[in-house]
Nucleic acid binder design. Structure first.
Length: 272
DNA sequence: ATGGCAATGTTTCATTGA
């Protein structure tokens, strides 16, 4: 199963990029964040033409998440859940669905704006609630992927000195990231040797992409029990080079999943 | 120290993102 995540920063503007990317990279599952569309505006017919069935949850202007599933390989998303049952939230940042024996949790973590701000507090509470939810036993192994808005380590930051203690890099955020991983996941990207200075987001300003002044804040967390079935994980910079790009690049993982009936063990859970 | 770029909404600018 090839599974990918991409913060598209408006699916309305980026639909041509998504369509082109899927033609080149016909992944089984593509999770999108920041669709910024009302549900009635979601381009499900265009994506269905491409062979993808979609589960989505949107709102005007901000947020919005979607799971695109290739009809001929993984079929329709089932058991779709919008939001975190433990954290009532107007903001559409979370959607999960079951596909091919895997529970896919697509997440758009809050940005946090600035350390110490109300939005930062919301970010930490949102993550804590996500961890509480994921700590519950699940019927299927969970893959948690999306825009985490956290650079887990200094090597995920182009200029660690400048970013030290700033939002996306603060100790409390990194601790939350580690806590999520400790629920029984591995960071798929770090299972492999990767080119140094590989990032998934670059600011639109100051030619940040050309300078590779980026951060790695988009992640795919795979259950420990599936770690040795992950065949690869990469960040695709190509779409970021196009005209009118998203500021994020897609992250893709290749997981060797048996078709539903394997003896895959769910991730080990933290004691209650 | 500040803002720089992009998207959205209803706009002639404010808000948010990261």
């Amino acid at each position: 199963m090839q599974i990918a995540t991409w913060n598209v920063n408006s699916l309305k503007v980026r639909l041509p990029h998504v369509v082109d990317w899927l033609r080149e990279n016909p992944v089984d599952v593509l999770c999108l964040q920041e669709t910024k569309l009302r549900d009635e505006q979601f381009p499900h017919s265009q994506l269905a033409e491409l062979g993808y069935e979609c589960a989505f949850a949107g709102q005007p202007t901000y947020n919005g998440v979607a799971i695109l599933a290739r009809r001929d390989t993984v079929g329709d998303p089932s058991s779709v859940v919008v939001g975190n049952p433990l954290f009532p939230d107007e903001q559409k940042r979370l959607i999960s669905a079951d596909l091919s024996g895997v529970r896919v949790v697509c997440a758009y973590f809050p940005n946090g704006q600035a350390v110490g701000s109300d939005k930062y507090d919301y970010k930490l509470r949102w993550i804590d609630a996500l961890a509480d939810w994921l700590a519950r036993p699940a019927a299927l192994p969970v893959v948690l992927l999306g825009d985490f808005n956290i650079a887990p380590e200094d090597r995920d930051v182009h200029d660690p000195k400048a970013w030290e203690g700033q939002v996306l890099c603060s100790a409390a955020e990194r601790e939350r990231f580690a806590r999520l991983v400790a629920l029984g996941f591995v960071d798929a990207f770090r299972l492999f040797d990767q080119p140094p200075k590989t990032y998934s987001w670059w600011d639109y300003r100051q030619m940040a992409f050309r300078r590779n002044a980026g951060l790695r804040i988009d992640h795919i967390l795979v259950p420990q029990g599936l770690a040795d079935r992950v065949r690869g994980c990469r960040i695709d910079r190509e779409p970021r080079k196009r005209e009118q790009p998203s500021d994020h690049a897609p992250v893709v993982a290749d997981i060797d999943v048996d078709d539903g009936q394997s003896a895959i063990t769910p991730p080990r859970r933290r004691p209650a």
